[in-house]
Amino acid sequence: MAHLVWQDDLNTGIEEVDNQHRRIVEMINHLYDVEQKDDKEELRKVLVDLVDYTQSHFAFEETLMEEAGYRFSRAHKKVHELFIRRVEEYRMRFDAGENIVQELRDTLTRWLLSHIRNEDAAYAETVKASMNALSTDQGWLSRSLKKFFG
């Protein structure tokens, strides 16, 4: 399997989320590159980094959804939890000496693309509307603070 290429239909329109998704794509591609070298220690490092970054990304997304009042945020969080468990199983299999890298990379690729295009796309409008409302409120707050405190 060749490198994963970012496609426009993966954009959610939320800059930070899109940047994080691109970073995950880069990490999946790095996993492919390291696999070609057959360096177990570097593979372990990439796997750990990928899992850690993905968990941080999920926490970020979940916070955005909750703050925006997205009505399916609990279900979305559950999907994240199940996926993290699945990836942790891959890490345990790797630690046990099993060669799971290609299977993991294929799973990550399929899951990520589907998840962004479906579940993430579903919350994007709610989060963007919330962010726009917040920026308007911050404008009001900023004006009020300047009025009172110069």
Results as ranks from 00 to 15, higher is better:
residue 96 A to E: 12
residue 117 R to H: 02
residue 64 L to E: 10
residue 6 W to R: 02
residue 55 Q to V: 15
residue 137 D to Q: 12
residue 5 V to A: 07
residue 65 M to V: 13
residue 63 T to A: 05
residue 82 L to Y: 14
residue 52 D to W: 11
residue 149 F to H: 12
residue 21 H to Y: 04
residue 93 R to S: 08
residue 81 E to W: 03
residue 123 Y to V: 09
residue 65 M to I: 13
residue 16 E to K: 05
residue 112 L to R: 10
residue 29 N to W: 12
residue 8 D to M: 06
residue 49 D to M: 11
residue 67 E to I: 06
residue 11 N to K: 11
residue 117 R to C: 03
residue 8 D to A: 06
residue 138 Q to P: 00
residue 62 E to C: 04
residue 131 M to C: 00
residue 24 I to L: 15
residue 88 E to P: 00
residue 107 T to F: 15
residue 120 D to H: 08
residue 113 L to E: 13
residue 34 V to T: 11
residue 4 L to D: 02
residue 63 T to G: 10
residue 15 E to Y: 06
residue 112 L to W: 11
residue 89 E to I: 14
residue 59 A to W: 06
residue 84 I to M: 08
residue 8 D to V: 05
residue 4 L to C: 07
residue 126 T to M: 01
residue 76 H to A: 02
residue 90 Y to N: 03
residue 21 H to K: 08
residue 64 L to R: 04
residue 2 A to S: 08
residue 3 H to K: 05
residue 131 M to R: 10
residue 135 S to W: 03
residue 136 T to I: 08
residue 56 S to C: 04
residue 127 V to I: 07
residue 104 L to R: 08
residue 27 M to S: 07
residue 108 L to Q: 01
residue 39 D to T: 08
residue 57 H to D: 05
residue 105 R to T: 02
residue 40 K to F: 09
residue 97 G to D: 06
residue 3 H to C: 01
residue 139 G to W: 13
residue 143 R to T: 09
residue 128 K to W: 00
residue 118 N to S: 12
residue 134 L to N: 13
residue 115 H to F: 10
residue 41 E to R: 11
residue 44 R to D: 06
residue 25 V to S: 07
residue 91 R to L: 15
residue 120 D to K: 05
residue 83 F to I: 06
residue 7 Q to T: 15
residue 144 S to P: 03
residue 113 L to C: 09
residue 140 W to H: 04
residue 145 L to R: 05
residue 99 N to Q: 07
residue 100 I to G: 03
residue 95 D to N: 09
residue 77 K to G: 06
residue 2 A to D: 07
residue 63 T to L: 07
residue 75 A to Q: 07
residue 8 D to T: 09
residue 67 E to S: 13
residue 126 T to C: 04
residue 132 N to F: 01
residue 117 R to Q: 10
residue 30 H to D: 01
residue 128 K to G: 00
residue 112 L to I: 14
residue 99 N to G: 00
residue 7 Q to E: 15
residue 13 G to H: 10
residue 125 E to T: 13
residue 43 L to Y: 07
residue 30 H to V: 00
residue 28 I to T: 12
residue 144 S to V: 15
residue 17 V to Q: 01
residue 46 V to P: 00
residue 76 H to W: 02
residue 143 R to H: 15
residue 73 S to A: 11
residue 120 D to A: 06
residue 37 K to Q: 12
residue 19 N to V: 02
residue 31 L to K: 05
residue 21 H to Q: 05
residue 30 H to I: 01
residue 33 D to C: 04
residue 66 E to D: 10
residue 110 R to Q: 14
residue 73 S to E: 07
residue 147 K to I: 11
residue 91 R to H: 12
residue 131 M to P: 00
residue 76 H to M: 06
residue 84 I to N: 03
residue 103 E to C: 08
residue 20 Q to R: 13
residue 9 D to S: 04
residue 106 D to R: 11
residue 47 L to A: 09
residue 146 K to R: 15
residue 24 I to R: 05
residue 24 I to T: 07
residue 140 W to P: 00
residue 75 A to N: 07
residue 15 E to P: 00
residue 3 H to M: 04
residue 50 L to N: 03
residue 130 S to I: 00
residue 101 V to R: 02
residue 111 W to E: 10
residue 57 H to P: 02
residue 38 D to C: 08
residue 28 I to M: 11
residue 116 I to V: 15
residue 92 M to H: 14
residue 119 E to P: 02
residue 120 D to V: 10
residue 27 M to E: 06
